[in-house]
Design a protein around this nucleic acid. Structure first.
Length: 289
RNA sequence: GGGUAGAUGCCCGAGUGGCUAAAGGGGGCAGACUGUAAAUCUGCUAGCGAAAGCUUACGUUGGUUCGAAUCCAUCUCUACCCA
């Protein structure tokens, strides 16, 4: 009898890692990362991954498993996580999956639509074209998909067009089948989402940012010069780069990181609010990280 | 003590007589989002109201005018310059 996975979600700095550890001990489980950036090696501090001590005191998986030069995506994450989860279950343990990357979690829990994988060359080509151009082509190839896509959003338009061009089919047709089964899947999942008041969460973010900057984040970023563009998307990376280059001072850097982190936390809350299967776990203390 | 510049909404900042509850940006709030997601994008953001609308707003007080964030005077404060 295999143990169903347990999911621990919540915005950044809400205390997922600590709770995951607690749950893993209680459920006789092993922790599996579901954070897009903690997947990478060399970004441990900036991505607020569990420390080496924490990683070694209990089984943790999928932390620091990708090279900086690799590029992750939701499907790739699932390809890594699925077999691992099965393996944990085969040993009679409960997978405790924790992380804040909503899309990655969604792929893991609800599966992926049968769509073609991203194509770097095609994307580079599309990036060079004006948005109106891409919109026009999408509208021509797949008017249905175009009508459902936020046409101001270059990323979304590009992906929809990419699907059409790579598959030779309509993105709208390929996506339709997948969406129907989601409700049924949700009813069988179990997990929780940590909820904290904004002031509490903001205070925790501020404490964590300071600890990062004091705790080697600058050295970490300095060591990562000239790696893949994935890193540039990590909150903190660009800001610390600017600090190292002398473009901004330390206080400004800290403020920028705090603001970006708060905004990210908000987006995560919006995402998880839609995942009705997650049981809210309201936490009120101002406990340190 | 003298001179100059300036004071605009939560913040920055545009605006030099009516089209101004006031451009734009930031922040905040809410939302979208199935292969870049810590990304990307959208809406709202003085108060009350469902709305029409009403009320309070551009440092202070007063004035000019049919009408003032915009013109005049006064005072207060800030910055810089000369003593």
């Amino acid at each position: 009898m295999k143990a169903e996975p347990y999911y621990i979600c919540g915005p950044t700095a809400s205390g997922k890692s600590a709770l995951a550890l607690e749950m893993a001990e209680k459920l006789d489980g092993e922790i599996v990362n579901a954070d897009a950036f903690q997947l990478y090696r060399g970004l441990e501090i900036v991505s607020a991954a569990p420390s080496a001590d924490e990683l070694s005191c209990w089984p943790h998986h999928l932390y620091g498993v990708l090279e900086p030069t690799e590029s992750a995506d939701a499907q790739r994450y699932v390809n890594l996580a699925k077999p691992l989860i099965a393996e944990i279950q085969s040993r009679g343990k409960t997978p405790v999956i924790t992380g804040g990357s909503g899309l990655y979690l969604k792929f893991l829990t609800h599966g992926a639509a049968p769509l073609p994988t991203a194509d770097a060359a095609l994307r580079a080509e599309m990036d060079a074209r004006p948005l109106e151009d891409l919109v026009a082509e999408l509208q021509q190839l797949d008017p249905v998909e175009a009508s459902r896509t936020a046409l101001q959003n270059r990323r979304f338009v590009s992906r929809a067009l990419e699907i059409c061009l790579l598959s030779g089919q309509k993105a709208s047709d390929l996506r339709d089948g997948w969406e129907k089964q989601t409700a049924e899947i949700s009813s069988q999942l179990r997990g929780l989402v940590i909820q904290r008041s904004r002031p509490d969460l903001h205070a925790r973010i501020a404490i964590r940012t300071r600890a990062m900057l004091d705790g080697g984040a600058l050295e970490e970023v300095a060591a990562l010069s000239n790696v893949s563009t994935n890193y540039e998307k990590a909150i903190g990376f660009r800001e610390i780069r600017a600090l190292l280059a002398g473009e901004i001072d330390r206080a400004t850097c800290e403020n920028l990181i705090n603001t970006a982190t708060r905004q990210y936390a908000k987006r995560q809350e919006t995402w998880f609010r839609r995942e009705k299967w997650l049981v809210p776990k309201v936490v009120q203390d101002f406990s340190p990280l």
